[in-house]
Design a protein around this nucleic acid. Structure first.
Lengths: 227, 227
DNA sequence: CCAAACAAGTACCGTACGGTACGGTTCGGG
DNA sequence: CCCGAACCGTACCGTACGGTACTTGTTTGG
């Protein structure tokens, strides 16, 4: 620490912080090591060997092991950018389809090995003093999901398809119905059957969307819910 | 490893495995260290100093660092045993009250510092080969929650208050509506406002129960849901 | 009253990690 | 052709951890 700090590849405030191709390869190798062996599997020596680079270069590029971990989170988050909404005023079927797509994407992302590994890393490091990885993961990963969901909810309300007073509560219900406790179970290493194959995953997504629709949908036979 | 293995305090299969008072104190100190400093804060030397015992005794009692961690999980799980159901055929209000109590208890337990620390520990160790802590935590911790919820659901159905085809799906919805993504956020170190004080927690619990009731409740004006 | 078990405290050992330093090599620009 | 920058590979250093051994009380049962 307290190195000369060229501050060009490790600047944390730069949103569009893009790594060179060499650093990208190194980050990819680091993610592979992390997925395979967890936190303790990712050592600087192993990474240098796996990525065919020197430890000195690692410290020059990322400054610190923590800087490397932060770069991994940022890099991975930049790789799974979620697509924006296609339209602004969807029909009921379109909207339900968008909800189902969101649910399916969410489950797919959360169950991905890289996402699980990074979440395990950040969670394992949380609870201490340093502990900025968790905040970074929330900011870079969860933020995108929340934004997409919020835009989705707004679009549905603007189209008169759903109704809610508390948008955060609606998001919480949508997220909870989709994910349940499967995320934590997967983080703990449990093999969740609903995530194993794509068909079960889509079934779970469809049921969650159906339940959310019953809670917040504005239909003709039921009263407009205001929760 | 491969010590003489007296196998009386570290036997993993014994469900009623109870530690002596000395071991209990040690486990309490270990939990305190874990809560304070996370995984890396709990070292054998520090624990020995904090608990006024010798490292040798630690290894004699728990065999191994992993054995100590397993004992901590088992001990903590035995301390937060959840109360059983008071009745078998509740009225509607009683049942809703029981649901609210379950929701409140669930949020209280999950947001507890010891629970968070143990979950962080198990999650951080998951993804490797050894990795039996996650399974142990699921078995000792989540199992109890799931059992209570399942008995609750069965009681509600037997009383004609709720209806469901897929009990696992109903549990997933109940759990998801109550917890949402707050557990993972707390595990990541985020300060979740809905958990900060008891009133916000109860509000969240009440809304979740309300939503669950709208999904699965058998009321007079709405159709009996069969999802 | 004594011996055997038990446990605290400390010292110790091997290892593995984060981080640094250095020599050799490649490569692009002048 | 040369120079300097970047970088690989490796060796090295200090530290901190898990686990073991040993010494000194202290309890306890016969």
């Amino acid at each position: 620490m307290l190195a000369p700090k060229t501050m060009e590849t490790t600047s944390a405030d730069d949103g569009a912080e893009s790594f060179g191709p060499r650093q990208t390869d190194v980050l990819q190798a680091a993610l592979a090591l992390l997925v395979e062996g967890g936190d303790k599997g990712l050592t600087t020596a192993r990474l240098a060997r796996a990525a065919n680079c020197s430890k000195e270069s690692l410290y020059k590029w990322f400054g610190d092991r923590n800087g490397l971990l932060e770069a991994m989170i940022t890099y991975q988050a930049s790789k799974v950018r979620i697509a924006a909404l296609p339209r602004v005023k969807p029909s009921a079927e379109e909207f339900r389809h968008q909800l189902a797509g969101f649910a399916s994407d969410l489950l797919t992302v959360l169950s991905g090995p890289t996402s699980l590994a990074l979440n395990r890393l950040s969670i394992g490091e949380a609870g201490r003093e340093g502990a900025q990885l968790g905040g970074l993961l929330i900011e870079r990963g969860r933020r995108a999901i929340e934004n997409r969901a919020m835009r989705l909810l707004d679009a549905g309300r603007d189209a008169g398809l759903i109704a809610f007073d508390n948008r955060d509560a609606a998001f919480n219900a949508l997220y909870g119905l989709i994910v349940g406790d499967m995320h934590v179970r997967m983080l703990l290493g449990d093999a969740v059957p609903l995530i194993a194959d794509a068909s079960a995953l889509d079934t779970q997504a469809a049921r969650a969307v159906d339940q959310f629709w019953r809670l917040y949908g504005v239909a003709e036979e039921t009263n407009p819910n205001t929760n």
